[in-house]
């Protein structure tokens, strides 16, 4: 488990597509538990998996995953 906090809209996009966790997991070739831990913020996926998830939802990766505002660098 990572202590990095990354917000994600996986659940929202999954609901929009009317997909179950298992269905999404199958589409990106992971287990349902992997999707579940990502959705609950317990696990931050790698760039590879984040890009795959963004690809199946046909959205940019930053639309799906965002850093918590307090973690954003100044500038």
């Amino acid at each position: 488990m990572s202590d990095k906090t990354v917000r994600n809209k996986l659940k929202v996009y999954r609901a929009m597509h009317d997909w179950t966790q298992e269905e999404l997991a199958y589409r990106v070739s992971v287990t349902r538990k992997t999707i579940n831990t990502i959705e609950n913020g317990k696990f931050v996926p790698s760039t590879y998996l984040a890009l795959k998830l963004a690809k199946v939802f046909q959205v940019p990766v930053e639309e799906l995953f965002q850093l918590d505002s307090e973690q954003m660098p100044d500038g």
């Binding site: 070739s29 992997t34 831990t37 696990f43």
Partner: peptide
């Protein structure tokens, strides 16, 4: 290949 990616190469399992 799909099972390998999902179960063996799974990053959560590796963690």
């Amino acid at each position: 290949p799909q099972l390998k990616e999902a179960l063996i190469d799974n990053e959560l399992t590796k963690l």
